[in-house]
Design a protein around this nucleic acid. Structure first.
Lengths: 222, 222
DNA sequence: GAGCGTTTTTATACACGTAAGAAAAGTTAG
DNA sequence: CTAACTTTTCTTACGTGTATAAAAACGCTC
Protein backbone atom coordinates (compact mmCIF):
# COMPACT_ATOMS: atom_id res chain seq x y z
CA UNK A 1 0.00 0.00 0.00
CA UNK A 2 1.38 3.38 -0.92
CA UNK A 3 1.71 5.84 1.89
CA UNK A 4 -0.27 9.00 1.16
CA UNK A 5 2.04 11.16 3.22
CA UNK A 6 5.56 9.92 2.73
CA UNK A 7 8.11 11.51 4.98
CA UNK A 8 10.63 11.97 2.19
CA UNK A 9 9.99 13.18 -1.33
CA UNK A 10 10.44 9.88 -3.08
CA UNK A 11 12.02 6.87 -1.52
CA UNK A 12 12.65 3.56 -3.14
CA UNK A 13 11.91 2.47 -6.64
CA UNK A 14 9.51 4.84 -8.40
CA UNK A 15 6.18 3.25 -9.26
CA UNK A 16 5.34 2.55 -12.88
CA UNK A 17 1.62 2.09 -12.28
CA UNK A 18 -0.84 3.72 -9.92
CA UNK A 19 -4.01 2.75 -8.22
CA UNK A 20 -5.89 5.25 -10.35
CA UNK A 21 -4.50 3.80 -13.56
CA UNK A 22 -5.45 0.32 -12.41
CA UNK A 23 -9.01 1.36 -11.66
CA UNK A 24 -9.26 3.23 -14.92
CA UNK A 25 -8.09 0.29 -16.99
CA UNK A 26 -10.24 -2.10 -15.02
CA UNK A 27 -13.26 0.06 -15.64
CA UNK A 28 -12.53 0.08 -19.35
CA UNK A 29 -12.22 -3.70 -19.45
CA UNK A 30 -15.45 -4.14 -17.54
CA UNK A 31 -17.43 -1.78 -19.73
CA UNK A 32 -15.96 -3.15 -22.93
CA UNK A 33 -15.83 -6.85 -22.21
CA UNK A 34 -17.86 -7.49 -19.09
CA UNK A 35 -16.82 -8.23 -15.56
CA UNK A 36 -16.14 -11.88 -16.35
CA UNK A 37 -13.29 -10.85 -18.61
CA UNK A 38 -11.64 -8.80 -15.90
CA UNK A 39 -8.73 -10.95 -14.79
CA UNK A 40 -5.64 -9.85 -13.00
CA UNK A 41 -3.49 -11.09 -15.87
CA UNK A 42 -5.43 -9.29 -18.55
CA UNK A 43 -5.52 -6.15 -16.46
CA UNK A 44 -1.78 -6.40 -16.01
CA UNK A 45 -0.97 -6.84 -19.68
CA UNK A 46 -3.36 -4.10 -20.75
CA UNK A 47 -1.72 -1.75 -18.30
CA UNK A 48 1.70 -2.88 -19.43
CA UNK A 49 2.81 -4.61 -16.26
CA UNK A 50 2.72 -7.98 -14.55
CA UNK A 51 -0.05 -9.51 -12.48
CA UNK A 52 1.78 -9.41 -9.19
CA UNK A 53 2.66 -5.76 -9.59
CA UNK A 54 -1.00 -4.96 -9.17
CA UNK A 55 -0.92 -6.42 -5.72
CA UNK A 56 1.18 -3.58 -4.44
CA UNK A 57 -1.61 -1.15 -5.21
CA UNK A 58 -4.60 -3.34 -4.42
CA UNK A 59 -4.94 -5.91 -1.68
CA UNK A 60 -6.75 -8.48 -3.77
CA UNK A 61 -9.29 -8.73 -6.52
CA UNK A 62 -12.18 -8.15 -4.18
CA UNK A 63 -10.76 -4.83 -3.08
CA UNK A 64 -10.31 -3.92 -6.72
CA UNK A 65 -13.99 -4.61 -7.30
CA UNK A 66 -14.93 -2.54 -4.28
CA UNK A 67 -12.84 0.29 -5.64
CA UNK A 68 -14.56 -0.12 -8.98
CA UNK A 69 -17.92 0.13 -7.27
CA UNK A 70 -16.83 3.25 -5.45
CA UNK A 71 -15.61 4.68 -8.70
CA UNK A 72 -18.89 3.84 -10.36
CA UNK A 73 -20.88 5.40 -7.56
CA UNK A 74 -18.85 8.59 -7.59
CA UNK A 75 -19.19 8.77 -11.33
CA UNK A 76 -22.90 8.13 -11.76
CA UNK A 77 -24.65 8.94 -8.49
CA UNK A 78 -26.25 12.32 -8.95
CA UNK A 79 -28.09 13.85 -6.06
CA UNK A 80 -31.75 14.08 -6.96
CA UNK A 81 -34.11 16.83 -5.93
CA UNK A 82 -35.07 16.08 -2.40
CA UNK A 83 -38.71 16.45 -1.39
CA UNK A 84 -39.52 18.37 1.76
CA UNK A 85 -41.65 15.57 3.14
CA UNK A 86 -39.13 13.51 5.11
CA UNK A 87 -40.86 10.24 4.32
CA UNK A 88 -40.62 10.91 0.62
CA UNK A 89 -37.03 11.97 1.08
CA UNK A 90 -36.22 8.53 2.43
CA UNK A 91 -37.96 6.83 -0.44
CA UNK A 92 -36.25 8.98 -3.04
CA UNK A 93 -32.80 8.50 -1.56
CA UNK A 94 -33.18 4.73 -1.32
CA UNK A 95 -34.70 4.45 -4.76
CA UNK A 96 -31.90 6.44 -6.33
CA UNK A 97 -29.27 4.21 -4.84
CA UNK A 98 -31.21 1.14 -5.80
CA UNK A 99 -31.61 2.33 -9.34
CA UNK A 100 -27.93 3.08 -9.74
CA UNK A 101 -26.87 -0.27 -8.33
CA UNK A 102 -29.43 -2.25 -10.28
CA UNK A 103 -28.15 -0.67 -13.47
CA UNK A 104 -24.75 -2.28 -13.14
CA UNK A 105 -25.41 -5.87 -12.24
CA UNK A 106 -21.78 -6.91 -12.13
CA UNK A 107 -21.51 -5.45 -8.67
CA UNK A 108 -23.33 -8.33 -7.11
CA UNK A 109 -20.17 -9.97 -5.91
CA UNK A 110 -19.17 -6.77 -4.15
CA UNK A 111 -22.53 -5.63 -3.00
CA UNK A 112 -22.33 -7.85 0.00
CA UNK A 113 -20.33 -5.10 1.58
CA UNK A 114 -22.06 -4.30 4.81
CA UNK A 115 -22.57 -0.71 3.80
CA UNK A 116 -22.14 1.49 0.87
CA UNK A 117 -19.30 3.50 2.20
CA UNK A 118 -18.30 5.29 -0.91
CA UNK A 119 -18.09 8.91 0.09
CA UNK A 120 -20.51 9.82 -2.64
CA UNK A 121 -23.05 7.41 -1.19
CA UNK A 122 -22.84 8.80 2.30
CA UNK A 123 -25.01 11.72 1.33
CA UNK A 124 -27.83 9.30 0.58
CA UNK A 125 -27.34 7.57 3.90
CA UNK A 126 -27.55 10.98 5.55
CA UNK A 127 -30.83 11.70 3.78
CA UNK A 128 -32.33 8.44 4.95
CA UNK A 129 -31.19 8.74 8.54
CA UNK A 130 -32.22 12.37 8.68
CA UNK A 131 -35.62 11.63 7.20
CA UNK A 132 -36.22 8.95 9.79
CA UNK A 133 -35.20 11.29 12.61
CA UNK A 134 -37.43 14.02 11.31
CA UNK A 135 -40.30 11.57 11.34
CA UNK A 136 -39.81 11.09 15.03
CA UNK A 137 -37.37 8.23 15.39
CA UNK A 138 -34.50 8.47 17.82
CA UNK A 139 -31.07 8.65 16.18
CA UNK A 140 -30.34 5.08 17.22
CA UNK A 141 -33.56 3.74 15.78
CA UNK A 142 -32.96 5.78 12.67
CA UNK A 143 -29.65 4.00 12.13
CA UNK A 144 -31.39 0.69 12.60
CA UNK A 145 -34.02 1.79 10.16
CA UNK A 146 -31.42 2.70 7.61
CA UNK A 147 -29.85 -0.71 8.06
CA UNK A 148 -33.19 -2.40 7.45
CA UNK A 149 -33.62 -0.39 4.26
CA UNK A 150 -30.12 -1.35 3.20
CA UNK A 151 -30.72 -5.03 3.89
CA UNK A 152 -33.86 -4.89 1.81
CA UNK A 153 -32.20 -2.99 -1.00
CA UNK A 154 -29.04 -5.08 -1.17
CA UNK A 155 -31.06 -8.27 -0.87
CA UNK A 156 -33.31 -7.30 -3.72
CA UNK A 157 -30.43 -6.56 -6.03
CA UNK A 158 -28.38 -9.60 -5.11
CA UNK A 159 -31.29 -11.98 -5.36
CA UNK A 160 -32.51 -10.58 -8.66
CA UNK A 161 -29.06 -10.46 -10.22
CA UNK A 162 -28.22 -13.99 -9.18
CA UNK A 163 -31.51 -15.26 -10.51
CA UNK A 164 -30.84 -13.56 -13.82
CA UNK A 165 -27.34 -14.97 -13.97
CA UNK A 166 -28.59 -18.48 -13.32
CA UNK A 167 -31.30 -18.12 -15.91
CA UNK A 168 -28.77 -17.07 -18.52
CA UNK A 169 -26.32 -19.75 -17.50
CA UNK A 170 -28.48 -22.83 -17.64
CA UNK A 171 -31.97 -24.14 -17.19
CA UNK A 172 -32.25 -24.51 -13.49
CA UNK A 173 -35.44 -22.52 -13.80
CA UNK A 174 -36.91 -25.73 -15.10
CA UNK A 175 -36.21 -27.33 -11.76
CA UNK A 176 -38.14 -24.60 -9.97
CA UNK A 177 -41.04 -25.00 -12.35
CA UNK A 178 -40.98 -28.69 -11.60
CA UNK A 179 -41.17 -28.03 -7.89
CA UNK A 180 -44.19 -25.81 -8.36
CA UNK A 181 -45.87 -28.21 -10.74
CA UNK A 182 -45.58 -31.02 -8.22
CA UNK A 183 -47.03 -29.08 -5.31
CA UNK A 184 -49.53 -30.94 -3.21
CA UNK A 185 -52.58 -28.65 -2.92
CA UNK A 186 -53.53 -30.27 0.35
CA UNK A 187 -50.23 -29.55 2.04
CA UNK A 188 -49.40 -26.20 0.51
CA UNK A 189 -52.68 -24.78 -0.74
CA UNK A 190 -51.62 -21.16 -1.14
CA UNK A 191 -48.52 -21.99 -3.14
CA UNK A 192 -50.48 -24.40 -5.29
CA UNK A 193 -52.97 -21.64 -5.88
CA UNK A 194 -50.37 -19.25 -7.26
CA UNK A 195 -48.05 -21.88 -8.70
CA UNK A 196 -48.60 -21.06 -12.34
CA UNK A 197 -48.34 -17.35 -11.69
CA UNK A 198 -45.19 -17.60 -9.57
CA UNK A 199 -42.70 -16.91 -12.33
CA UNK A 200 -44.34 -13.77 -13.71
CA UNK A 201 -45.19 -12.55 -10.20
CA UNK A 202 -41.64 -12.81 -8.99
CA UNK A 203 -40.37 -11.29 -12.20
CA UNK A 204 -42.23 -8.06 -11.51
CA UNK A 205 -40.29 -5.17 -10.09
CA UNK A 206 -41.90 -4.44 -6.75
CA UNK A 207 -38.95 -2.79 -5.09
CA UNK A 208 -40.79 0.46 -4.57
CA UNK A 209 -43.83 -1.22 -3.05
CA UNK A 210 -41.74 -3.13 -0.57
CA UNK A 211 -39.67 -0.09 0.24
CA UNK A 212 -42.77 2.00 0.96
CA UNK A 213 -44.15 -0.75 3.15
CA UNK A 214 -40.89 -1.00 5.05
CA UNK A 215 -40.62 2.76 5.56
CA UNK A 216 -44.25 2.97 6.65
CA UNK A 217 -43.70 0.18 9.10
CA UNK A 218 -40.55 1.74 10.45
CA UNK A 219 -42.32 5.04 11.03
CA UNK A 220 -45.47 3.69 12.65
CA UNK A 221 -43.60 1.54 15.12
CA UNK A 222 -43.26 3.40 18.31
CA UNK B 1 -26.93 -36.51 -14.75
CA UNK B 2 -28.31 -39.90 -13.79
CA UNK B 3 -31.72 -40.68 -15.09
CA UNK B 4 -34.07 -41.44 -12.19
CA UNK B 5 -36.21 -43.76 -14.28
CA UNK B 6 -33.93 -45.66 -16.59
CA UNK B 7 -35.73 -47.77 -19.14
CA UNK B 8 -33.47 -50.76 -18.64
CA UNK B 9 -32.17 -52.23 -15.42
CA UNK B 10 -28.60 -50.99 -15.64
CA UNK B 11 -26.91 -49.88 -18.78
CA UNK B 12 -23.36 -48.77 -19.17
CA UNK B 13 -20.62 -48.70 -16.62
CA UNK B 14 -21.96 -49.01 -13.08
CA UNK B 15 -21.34 -45.92 -10.96
CA UNK B 16 -18.84 -46.08 -8.13
CA UNK B 17 -20.06 -42.93 -6.43
CA UNK B 18 -23.47 -41.39 -5.99
CA UNK B 19 -24.87 -37.93 -5.53
CA UNK B 20 -25.86 -38.82 -1.99
CA UNK B 21 -22.37 -40.00 -1.12
CA UNK B 22 -20.93 -36.81 -2.57
CA UNK B 23 -23.25 -34.63 -0.50
CA UNK B 24 -22.59 -36.67 2.60
CA UNK B 25 -18.84 -36.40 2.27
CA UNK B 26 -19.06 -32.75 1.39
CA UNK B 27 -21.13 -32.10 4.49
CA UNK B 28 -18.55 -33.86 6.62
CA UNK B 29 -15.74 -31.80 5.15
CA UNK B 30 -17.64 -28.57 5.69
CA UNK B 31 -18.52 -29.33 9.28
CA UNK B 32 -15.06 -30.61 10.11
CA UNK B 33 -12.87 -28.18 8.22
CA UNK B 34 -15.05 -25.31 7.07
CA UNK B 35 -16.45 -24.42 3.70
CA UNK B 36 -13.16 -22.96 2.54
CA UNK B 37 -11.57 -26.38 2.71
CA UNK B 38 -14.22 -27.92 0.52
CA UNK B 39 -12.52 -28.30 -2.83
CA UNK B 40 -13.47 -30.61 -5.62
CA UNK B 41 -10.08 -32.30 -5.41
CA UNK B 42 -10.25 -32.91 -1.70
CA UNK B 43 -13.81 -34.10 -1.97
CA UNK B 44 -12.76 -36.49 -4.71
CA UNK B 45 -9.86 -37.99 -2.79
CA UNK B 46 -11.87 -38.30 0.41
CA UNK B 47 -14.58 -40.12 -1.48
CA UNK B 48 -11.98 -42.27 -3.22
CA UNK B 49 -12.41 -40.96 -6.71
CA UNK B 50 -11.16 -38.27 -9.07
CA UNK B 51 -12.29 -34.66 -9.36
CA UNK B 52 -13.84 -35.00 -12.77
CA UNK B 53 -15.88 -38.01 -11.74
CA UNK B 54 -17.87 -35.71 -9.49
CA UNK B 55 -19.02 -33.74 -12.45
CA UNK B 56 -21.18 -36.56 -13.66
CA UNK B 57 -23.28 -36.28 -10.52
CA UNK B 58 -23.17 -32.54 -9.97
CA UNK B 59 -23.21 -29.82 -12.57
CA UNK B 60 -20.62 -27.64 -10.88
CA UNK B 61 -19.49 -26.58 -7.47
CA UNK B 62 -22.28 -24.08 -7.09
CA UNK B 63 -24.88 -26.77 -7.58
CA UNK B 64 -23.08 -28.84 -4.99
CA UNK B 65 -23.36 -25.97 -2.53
CA UNK B 66 -27.03 -25.53 -3.31
CA UNK B 67 -27.52 -29.22 -2.66
CA UNK B 68 -25.64 -28.85 0.59
CA UNK B 69 -27.93 -26.01 1.60
CA UNK B 70 -30.96 -28.09 0.75
CA UNK B 71 -29.52 -30.94 2.76
CA UNK B 72 -28.87 -28.63 5.67
CA UNK B 73 -32.38 -27.18 5.52
CA UNK B 74 -33.98 -30.60 5.39
CA UNK B 75 -31.85 -31.72 8.27
CA UNK B 76 -32.27 -28.84 10.67
CA UNK B 77 -35.44 -26.95 9.76
CA UNK B 78 -38.07 -28.03 12.26
CA UNK B 79 -41.54 -26.65 11.94
CA UNK B 80 -42.29 -24.48 14.94
CA UNK B 81 -45.62 -24.12 16.64
CA UNK B 82 -47.63 -21.77 14.53
CA UNK B 83 -49.65 -19.05 16.24
CA UNK B 84 -53.24 -18.57 15.19
CA UNK B 85 -52.77 -14.86 14.62
CA UNK B 86 -51.74 -14.71 10.96
CA UNK B 87 -49.46 -11.75 11.47
CA UNK B 88 -47.54 -13.60 14.14
CA UNK B 89 -47.47 -16.64 11.91
CA UNK B 90 -45.62 -14.66 9.27
CA UNK B 91 -43.13 -13.38 11.80
CA UNK B 92 -42.51 -16.81 13.28
CA UNK B 93 -42.02 -18.46 9.90
CA UNK B 94 -39.61 -15.81 8.68
CA UNK B 95 -37.71 -15.73 11.94
CA UNK B 96 -37.28 -19.49 11.97
CA UNK B 97 -35.82 -19.50 8.48
CA UNK B 98 -33.62 -16.56 9.32
CA UNK B 99 -32.35 -18.23 12.45
CA UNK B 100 -31.52 -21.45 10.67
CA UNK B 101 -29.69 -19.70 7.88
CA UNK B 102 -27.83 -17.33 10.15
CA UNK B 103 -26.55 -20.30 12.11
CA UNK B 104 -24.58 -21.63 9.18
CA UNK B 105 -22.82 -18.65 7.70
CA UNK B 106 -21.04 -20.58 4.99
CA UNK B 107 -24.16 -20.50 2.91
CA UNK B 108 -23.68 -16.91 1.96
CA UNK B 109 -22.34 -17.76 -1.43
CA UNK B 110 -25.39 -19.85 -2.17
CA UNK B 111 -27.94 -17.73 -0.44
CA UNK B 112 -28.17 -15.49 -3.40
CA UNK B 113 -30.52 -18.06 -4.84
CA UNK B 114 -33.64 -16.17 -5.71
CA UNK B 115 -35.74 -18.32 -3.45
CA UNK B 116 -35.32 -20.98 -0.93
CA UNK B 117 -36.72 -23.80 -2.94
CA UNK B 118 -35.71 -26.66 -0.78
CA UNK B 119 -38.85 -28.69 -0.34
CA UNK B 120 -38.52 -28.43 3.39
CA UNK B 121 -38.48 -24.65 3.14
CA UNK B 122 -41.60 -24.45 1.06
CA UNK B 123 -43.73 -24.99 4.11
CA UNK B 124 -42.42 -21.76 5.56
CA UNK B 125 -43.12 -19.91 2.35
CA UNK B 126 -46.64 -21.27 2.51
CA UNK B 127 -47.07 -19.98 6.04
CA UNK B 128 -45.94 -16.52 5.05
CA UNK B 129 -48.06 -16.28 1.94
CA UNK B 130 -51.05 -17.72 3.74
CA UNK B 131 -50.65 -15.33 6.64
CA UNK B 132 -50.55 -12.39 4.29
CA UNK B 133 -53.65 -13.57 2.48
CA UNK B 134 -55.50 -14.09 5.73
CA UNK B 135 -54.64 -10.54 6.67
CA UNK B 136 -56.46 -9.33 3.61
CA UNK B 137 -53.90 -9.21 0.84
CA UNK B 138 -54.71 -10.59 -2.56
CA UNK B 139 -52.74 -13.71 -3.51
CA UNK B 140 -50.64 -11.70 -5.93
CA UNK B 141 -49.79 -9.07 -3.37
CA UNK B 142 -49.09 -11.80 -0.87
CA UNK B 143 -46.46 -13.27 -3.17
CA UNK B 144 -44.92 -9.85 -3.56
CA UNK B 145 -44.98 -9.47 0.19
CA UNK B 146 -43.22 -12.77 0.65
CA UNK B 147 -40.59 -11.66 -1.83
CA UNK B 148 -40.03 -8.45 0.12
CA UNK B 149 -39.59 -10.45 3.30
CA UNK B 150 -37.16 -12.75 1.52
CA UNK B 151 -35.15 -9.83 0.15
CA UNK B 152 -34.91 -8.39 3.61
CA UNK B 153 -33.98 -11.70 5.19
CA UNK B 154 -31.42 -12.75 2.60
CA UNK B 155 -29.96 -9.26 2.54
CA UNK B 156 -29.54 -9.22 6.28
CA UNK B 157 -27.73 -12.54 6.33
CA UNK B 158 -25.52 -11.85 3.35
CA UNK B 159 -24.54 -8.40 4.53
CA UNK B 160 -23.83 -9.52 8.08
CA UNK B 161 -21.90 -12.60 7.05
CA UNK B 162 -19.77 -10.71 4.58
CA UNK B 163 -19.03 -8.03 7.12
CA UNK B 164 -17.96 -10.68 9.59
CA UNK B 165 -15.79 -12.38 7.01
CA UNK B 166 -14.07 -9.13 6.12
CA UNK B 167 -13.53 -8.31 9.74
CA UNK B 168 -11.88 -11.65 10.32
CA UNK B 169 -9.89 -11.42 7.12
CA UNK B 170 -8.27 -8.05 7.50
CA UNK B 171 -8.70 -4.61 8.97
CA UNK B 172 -10.88 -2.90 6.43
CA UNK B 173 -13.03 -1.94 9.39
CA UNK B 174 -10.36 0.60 10.14
CA UNK B 175 -11.10 2.23 6.83
CA UNK B 176 -14.74 2.57 7.72
CA UNK B 177 -13.88 4.05 11.08
CA UNK B 178 -11.69 6.51 9.30
CA UNK B 179 -14.53 7.55 7.03
CA UNK B 180 -16.74 8.19 10.01
CA UNK B 181 -14.07 10.03 11.92
CA UNK B 182 -13.55 12.41 9.02
CA UNK B 183 -17.19 13.29 8.59
CA UNK B 184 -17.95 16.94 8.04
CA UNK B 185 -20.71 17.81 10.54
CA UNK B 186 -21.87 20.60 8.30
CA UNK B 187 -22.43 18.42 5.30
CA UNK B 188 -23.62 15.24 6.98
CA UNK B 189 -24.86 16.29 10.41
CA UNK B 190 -26.88 13.20 11.27
CA UNK B 191 -24.08 10.83 10.41
CA UNK B 192 -21.61 12.92 12.32
CA UNK B 193 -23.97 12.82 15.26
CA UNK B 194 -24.03 9.04 15.39
CA UNK B 195 -20.53 8.48 14.04
CA UNK B 196 -18.99 7.11 17.21
CA UNK B 197 -21.97 4.88 17.86
CA UNK B 198 -22.17 3.54 14.32
CA UNK B 199 -20.16 0.38 14.89
CA UNK B 200 -22.04 -0.84 17.98
CA UNK B 201 -25.37 0.23 16.49
CA UNK B 202 -24.85 -1.73 13.32
CA UNK B 203 -23.55 -4.67 15.28
CA UNK B 204 -26.85 -5.05 17.09
CA UNK B 205 -29.21 -7.72 15.86
CA UNK B 206 -32.32 -5.86 14.80
CA UNK B 207 -33.63 -8.40 12.35
CA UNK B 208 -36.86 -8.88 14.25
CA UNK B 209 -37.54 -5.16 14.53
CA UNK B 210 -37.09 -4.64 10.83
CA UNK B 211 -39.14 -7.70 10.01
CA UNK B 212 -42.03 -6.50 12.16
CA UNK B 213 -41.87 -3.09 10.57
CA UNK B 214 -41.89 -4.61 7.11
CA UNK B 215 -44.80 -6.91 7.88
CA UNK B 216 -46.75 -4.07 9.46
CA UNK B 217 -46.12 -1.93 6.45
CA UNK B 218 -47.12 -4.68 4.05
CA UNK B 219 -50.38 -5.20 5.90
CA UNK B 220 -51.42 -1.58 6.27
CA UNK B 221 -50.84 -0.77 2.62
CA UNK B 222 -54.05 -1.07 0.80
C1' DG C 1 31.25 5.25 -6.51
C1' DA C 2 30.16 1.53 -3.19
C1' DG C 3 27.18 0.08 -0.03
C1' DC C 4 22.60 0.54 2.20
C1' DG C 5 17.62 1.06 3.03
C1' DT C 6 13.26 1.42 0.84
C1' DT C 7 9.89 0.64 -2.50
C1' DT C 8 8.20 -1.40 -6.60
C1' DT C 9 8.36 -4.91 -9.96
C1' DT C 10 9.17 -9.48 -11.70
C1' DA C 11 9.68 -14.69 -11.81
C1' DT C 12 8.25 -18.80 -10.25
C1' DA C 13 5.02 -21.81 -8.29
C1' DC C 14 0.82 -23.68 -6.17
C1' DA C 15 -4.04 -24.95 -5.60
C1' DC C 16 -8.23 -24.20 -7.53
C1' DG C 17 -12.54 -25.09 -10.89
C1' DT C 18 -13.40 -27.41 -14.88
C1' DA C 19 -13.27 -28.19 -20.35
C1' DA C 20 -12.18 -31.97 -23.65
C1' DG C 21 -11.55 -36.26 -24.82
C1' DA C 22 -9.78 -40.92 -24.00
C1' DA C 23 -10.35 -45.00 -21.44
C1' DA C 24 -12.89 -48.36 -18.73
C1' DA C 25 -16.73 -51.30 -17.41
C1' DG C 26 -20.74 -52.88 -17.96
C1' DT C 27 -25.17 -54.79 -21.19
C1' DT C 28 -26.96 -56.38 -25.36
C1' DA C 29 -27.17 -57.98 -30.42
C1' DG C 30 -25.21 -60.77 -33.83
C1' DC D 1 -17.03 -64.69 -28.65
C1' DT D 2 -17.15 -60.43 -30.77
C1' DA D 3 -18.74 -55.98 -31.78
C1' DA D 4 -21.58 -52.16 -30.85
C1' DC D 5 -23.54 -49.13 -27.54
C1' DT D 6 -24.04 -46.65 -23.02
C1' DT D 7 -22.71 -44.73 -18.94
C1' DT D 8 -19.17 -43.60 -15.74
C1' DT D 9 -14.47 -42.64 -14.69
C1' DC D 10 -9.86 -41.03 -15.54
C1' DT D 11 -6.07 -38.24 -17.82
C1' DT D 12 -4.47 -34.21 -19.35
C1' DA D 13 -4.52 -29.37 -19.79
C1' DC D 14 -5.92 -24.45 -19.40
C1' DG D 15 -6.82 -20.15 -17.06
C1' DT D 16 -7.48 -18.33 -12.71
C1' DG D 17 -6.13 -15.73 -7.97
C1' DT D 18 -2.23 -15.10 -5.41
C1' DA D 19 1.88 -16.62 -1.97
C1' DT D 20 6.82 -16.25 -1.87
C1' DA D 21 11.04 -14.65 -2.75
C1' DA D 22 14.25 -12.66 -5.74
C1' DA D 23 15.46 -8.77 -8.58
C1' DA D 24 15.44 -3.99 -9.95
C1' DA D 25 15.42 1.02 -9.37
C1' DC D 26 15.70 4.87 -6.85
C1' DG D 27 17.81 8.31 -2.85
C1' DC D 28 20.95 8.46 0.80
C1' DT D 29 25.46 8.34 3.38
C1' DC D 30 30.28 7.40 3.65
Amino acid sequence: MPQPSAPRKTLGRPPRISREAIIETARRIVTEAGVDRLTMRRLATEIGSTPMALYHHVRDKEELLVLLLDDYATRTLRRPEIPVDPRERIVVAATTIHQALAACPWIVEVLTADDLMSTSALWFVEQIVDGLVECGLSPDRAVHGYRAIWYYTAGEIVVRATAARRRAHDDRATYREQVFADLDPNELPRLAQVADRWAPLTAQDTYLDGLRALVDGLLTSR
